[in-house]
Amino acid sequence: MNLNQLTFREAVQGDLDNIVLMLSDDKLGQKRERYTRPLLESYLNAFHSIEADPNNELIVACDREEVVGVLQLTMIPFLTYQGGWRASIEGVRTAMTHRGRGIGTLLIKRAIQRASDRGCHMIQLTTDKQRPEARRFYEKLGFEATHDGMKLHLLRK
């Protein structure tokens, strides 16, 4: 695979199977995702919500026609920073067969450019403490661990 031939676009519904497979294809993803065929309806519902929201982008990296990477980019308006916008990155994954080739780096750079194009003053993400290699990856791209993030999981209805 030649990284110069890698293309980026917004995901379409036909990509969803590959996206969910990538999200579930690691130790942590296996605990929280369910890759089944057919896919759970909740994945399709979430995709349609993301697709309909102009402040959300589900970006895929493609090697020719094959989806080999994904991330979700969300632009969020805030009152802080004088009413500034910031972007949030979530669900960064590269296909198991394509890891270590620079696809993740190019995906993040694409997200940074998209956030900049939309006028965001900051881009943020979280990474699980069980993934120290992910933290090192983001630090190499210029991200700094300036805050402690906290989460509260809510019961699903």
Rank of each mutant, 00 (worst) to 15 (best):
Leu6Gly: 04
Leu6Gln: 02
Phe8Leu: 02
Phe8Gln: 05
Phe8Ser: 08
Arg9Phe: 07
Glu10Ser: 13
Ala11Asp: 01
Ala11Ile: 00
Ala11Leu: 02
Val12Gln: 10
Val12Ala: 09
Gln13Ala: 07
Gly14Asp: 12
Gly14Asn: 11
Gly14Gln: 11
Asp15Arg: 03
Asp15Ser: 05
Leu16Phe: 10
Asp17Arg: 12
Asp17His: 11
Asn18Arg: 15
Ile19Gln: 01
Ile19His: 01
Ile19Cys: 08
Ile19Pro: 03
Val20Met: 04
Leu21His: 14
Leu21Phe: 13
Leu21Val: 05
Leu21Met: 11
Met22Asn: 03
Met22His: 04
Leu23Ala: 08
Leu23His: 06
Asp26Tyr: 15
Lys27Trp: 09
Leu28His: 14
Leu28Asp: 07
Gly29Lys: 01
Gly29Val: 01
Gly29Ser: 02
Gly29Ala: 09
Gln30Ser: 14
Lys31Thr: 12
Lys31Trp: 07
Lys31Ile: 09
Arg32Ile: 14
Arg32Asp: 09
Glu33Asp: 08
Glu33Tyr: 15
Arg34Asn: 13
Arg34His: 12
Tyr35Phe: 15
Thr36Glu: 14
Arg37Ile: 13
Arg37Thr: 14
Pro38Asp: 07
Pro38Val: 10
Pro38Gly: 10
Leu40Ala: 12
Leu40Ile: 06
Leu40Asn: 07
Glu41Thr: 05
Ser42Trp: 06
Ser42Gln: 13
Tyr43Cys: 05
Tyr43Ser: 05
Tyr43Ile: 03
Tyr43Ala: 02
Tyr43Asp: 04
Asn45Ser: 12
Asn45Arg: 04
Ala46Ile: 07
Phe47Glu: 00
Ser49Ile: 00
Ser49Gly: 13
Ile50Ala: 01
Ile50Ser: 00
Ile50Cys: 01
Glu51Met: 03
Ala52Gln: 09
Ala52Asn: 09
Asp53Cys: 02
Asp53Val: 00
Asn55His: 12
Asn55Phe: 06
